[in-house]
């Protein structure tokens, strides 16, 4: 097998990985702090994509239309996430995890149909921004600039979030909340504000990744429930609630998917699930997670 081909597979896997990381990071943050698997995270991602498409339609004349659309979509989804958390979700914090899970599932149902009602069921697509339209040839493989941009953005977001988590007061409170909620309340921190902030940040990341995926994938109904499974697998592989675990989980997922196609041509999806199964059996708390009971 030629080295250039393998390199191409590797880069393809890396692009997938960084996209997944952008999505899964928000899911992981909310899980780490609130101990909730937010099924609606996929819906936020889908809304980010539709909103971006909408804004691009409005701003066809502007040269920066795509970038404005990305920012607007991410901000719009972040606001929606904050409103949902403030108005509804917070009332379920004292309840069993079942009710919280089903709440986020109710959002999946409602937002999925709302998107259908507004944007229809046709496939929509957005073209690449002009500034990143071209590509560069590396080892006989054409690498689109847009993919390079995503590959750079993923680690940048990872480092950025990590710096906020470790260096800022808010970040320290968030990490404390992840470790021990009661302790945090005893210390007098306003847990409610932290949770809202977390939900907004997580929704922002979902909206951002949904908007950024539009030049590469078409926007279709059903993309919400599909992506949430992939993001879920990444988070499980990396370790529930572990931020860097999610990063390396994404990298591993991307590579296994990319090279899995070579080993089992029709079973690429299967190779990822097999990876998850093996990890769950050996380390149910994931590669970077802590054992829980």
């Amino acid at each position: 097998m030629p080295a250039s081909f393998l390199f191409g597979q590797f880069l393809g896997g890396l692009t997938t990985a960084m996209f997944l990381f952008l999505i899964a990071s928000g899911l992981s943050l909310v899980f780490g702090v609130m101990r909730v698997l937010n099924f609606a995270h996929g819906s936020f991602y889908m809304l980010g994509a539709y909103l971006a498409w909408q804004v691009v339609q409005w701003l066809t004349s502007s040269g920066y239309g795509f970038w404005i659309a990305v920012v607007a979509a991410a901000a719009g989804v972040a606001i929606l996430g904050g409103v949902i958390e403030r108005l509804l979700f917070r009332h379920l914090y004292g309840r069993e995890e079942l009710y919280q899970l089903l709440f986020t599932y109710a959002l999946v149902l409602i937002l999925g149909d709302a998107a259908k009602a507004i944007w229809g069921t046709q496939q929509l697509s957005v073209s690449r921004p002009a500034i990143l339209a071209g590509g560069v040839e590396v080892f006989h493989t054409v690498l689109p600039f847009y993919n390079l941009f995503i590959m750079a953005l993923g680690p940048a977001v990872a480092v950025g979030v990590w710096l906020v988590l470790t260096r800022s007061t808010a970040g320290r409170l968030v990490r404390a909340a992840a470790l021990d909620r009661e302790m945090l309340a005893v210390l007098g921190a306003n847990v409610g504000v932290i949770y809202t902030g977390m939900f907004v940040a997580s929704s922002f990341l979902a909206g951002l990744s949904g908007a950024l995926v539009t030049p590469i994938q078409s926007i279709v109904p059903g993309m919400d429930v599909e992506i949430i499974v992939e993001a879920f697998i990444v988070v499980v592989i990396g370790g529930l609630g572990s931020f860097w675990g999610t990063f390396w989980g994404s990298v591993l997922y991307g590579q296994v998917l990319s090279f899995g196609i070579l080993i089992f041509p029709s079973f690429s999806l299967f190779s990822v699930f097999a990876l998850m199964a093996v990890i769950l059996i050996i380390r149910p708390w994931g590669l970077f997670g802590r054992p829980v009971r």
Partner: peptide, 17 residues
């Protein structure tokens, strides 16, 4: 071997497998 939300997530993972 797991409890609560972790149990829920693991059952979900196996069903997806």
């Amino acid at each position: 071997r797991l409890t609560k939300i972790y149990f829920a997530m693991l059952t979900l993972a196996f069903s997806q497998i």
